[in-house]
């Protein structure tokens, strides 16, 4: 069974018919070609698939493509600009906040949303706000440092 959708992915509109069962993450990977979004579990725990839907970080593995009809999606591929990496990506690079990289797109997308919406961030708050993202490599401290740094930079820029 199919359903028609019109979804903007990283500023590019995508109008097509998809199976009703198609999850947003599969649409992003298989239809929109954004393979930076990956899946690390079946139960909505790991957060590897986090993307922005109309400006909110959500887990694209627990959302139907049909539910995103009319929405604007931002994925890891849409984060960098012509000037280079997004400050959050840069902060992750500088703080060695990634190793294997599998959880990275999801955490970066959540972190960008966190910094946009929270203006007073400390370590404890960040650790709570990224509880929906599992990372097996880093032990998280460098991730926290990267987000703190990007938050400081956002504040300076604001």
């Amino acid at each position: 069974m199919k359903t028609a959708v019109s979804i903007i992915v990283n500023d590019r509109r995508c109008e097509t018919e998809v199976p009703t069962t198609m999850l947003l993450v599969d649409f992003l990977r298989e239809v929109a070609g954004s393979k930076g979004t990956v899946v690390g579990c079946d139960t909505g725990q790991c957060g590897c698939c986090t993307v922005h839907v109309d400006g909110d970080a959500v887990k694209s593995c627990t959302m139907l493509t049909a539910q995103a009809d009319g929405a604007s999606i931002l994925t890891i591929e849409g984060l960098a600009s012509a000037d280079g990496m997004h400050p959050m990506q840069r902060a992750f690079h500088e703080h060695h906040a990634l190793q294997c990289g599998y959880c990275t797109a999801g955490i970066v997308m959540n972190a960008v949303d966190i910094v946009t919406k929270h203006h007073e961030l400390d370590e404890r708050t960040i650790r709570r706000l990224i509880e929906g993202n599992l990372c097996r490599c880093t032990g998280y401290s460098n991730i926290v440092d990267a987000i703190l740094e990007a938050a400081r930079e956002a504040k300076r820029g604001a």
Partner: peptide, 19 residues
């Protein structure tokens, strides 16, 4: 040295088998 792996891993261009 800065990690040479990061650029692709941070921008969604990783070469995991599924990709």
């Amino acid at each position: 040295a800065p990690r040479i792996e990061d650029a692709r891993l941070l921008t969604g261009k990783a070469r995991y088998v599924e990709n």
